[in-house]
Amino acid sequence: MAQYEFSGYVDKKNWSGDIYLSLIEDYRKLSGVYPEQIIQKTVSDSMGYFSFSGDNLPLQNHMYRIHIEGCSENEKKPIHFNGFCPYSKEILFIANNTDTLTLPFSFDNEMFCKIVSNNEKSNAFIKVDSIIDEMRFAFASYRSEANRKINEKKWFTTLQRFVKNQNEPLTELYVYAFLSDKSNNLYAHYLEDLKQNTYYDNLLERLQKKYPNSTYTKQYETELASDKFIISPKEVSYKNWWLWIVLACAIALNIFQFLYYRKKINASHNSSEKNLTQQEQKVLDLILDDKTNKEIASTMFVSISTIKTHINNLYKKLEVSSRDEVKSLYIKK
């Protein structure tokens, strides 16, 4: 029988709540708290150690999330209503039911920052996130329109080449979910890229070959058809009436997701700000003062890498992806 074990440590001083293992079948719900995804729950011991084990996971690689949240029982229902929880910490990874995976403490006792596994694919999402972080800092360094256009093409190519070389379609799907997110500033460039880049059709072929009957493949196939219809509606045959029905449903879903996201952002910023640590609040104040990472590190007497970690956590809690977006929140206020 195939056995799996996922274990790790949490910061017992700051996190004492339940720890959840979730199976992600909808790649548009990678981050958040969704009860329908949770397959196991546990608590850590006095040293912060926790473990998930069993033999009930799918045989093939799937996307998983381990997260801990610090909400009280009275807070959970209203706060988790839209899947977003400002009082949570999580890590995403790829695994199957023959894997052993550990989550040790990383630098500065940061938890959920490193994965040690016998599955070489498990660390793929963390590697992708590091590239995305580099991209965000590159965009923030020079805010001109010319720089934005140059960087968009560069980072699209960099991300797609990297994940394709990983030989794991689920990692490619993780990047696709990021690039094609309608709330992302790169969405317009994604639609332009879709017109001329055969990468997206090739990804569908790889998914169909490796995961022929999975929800990931079916979801991607529907979304890709919908986006192609958006950019080139005349190329869709009127005879394929069934495809029109699928496209109409997909477009309606896309509109709903966009409106849902906007509502989620407006409702979550206030609660997110309250969850900032003292160090993250200092970083936020210095960002609003137009300080560079080097200047912030000098002011706070820490390394630039530590500042990058604080900024990444700050972006996640405020649900933004750049300094400009951070500033826009406070300009509106």
Rank of each mutant, 00 (worst) to 15 (best):
D227N: 09
F137W: 06
D289P: 00
S226E: 08
K209N: 11
R206C: 08
K209P: 02
Q208F: 01
Q279P: 12
N109V: 04
L173N: 06
K77V: 09
Q166N: 12
K29Q: 14
R161K: 11
S180H: 05
K182T: 07
K41D: 00
S303F: 03
V128M: 02
H67W: 10
M300Q: 04
S88Q: 11
S31H: 12
E221Q: 14
F256V: 03
K195N: 07
S271K: 15
I245V: 10
C113L: 06
L276S: 00
D227Q: 07
N118D: 15
D324V: 12
Q219S: 13
I255G: 03
T299A: 12
Y315L: 02
G17V: 02
E25T: 10
L259R: 09
I230V: 12
T102D: 14
Q281F: 04
Y34V: 00
K316P: 03
S268P: 06
N118E: 10
N151P: 07
Q281Y: 04
Q40N: 11
E120C: 07
I19C: 01
N202A: 10
H62I: 00
E152V: 07
N254Y: 12
C71Q: 02
I131L: 08
R28G: 04
H80F: 08
Q166I: 05
M111S: 14
F258M: 09
Y200G: 05
W242I: 14
Q278R: 11
N56Q: 11
D11A: 09
S51Q: 10
H67F: 07
N147F: 11
K127W: 04
D227Y: 08
R262H: 11
L204D: 11
I39K: 05
Y142Q: 08
I19P: 00
Y261R: 09
N118G: 08
F162H: 06
E280S: 07
I38S: 01
A252S: 14
E25R: 10
N74E: 10
F162E: 02
K164D: 13
Y142F: 11
S272Q: 10
C85Q: 15
D324I: 04
E152M: 07
R323Y: 12
S271V: 05
N197T: 10
E295H: 01
K12H: 13
N109C: 08
S214Q: 00
P86K: 03
L224G: 01
A225I: 05
K210I: 02
L224D: 00
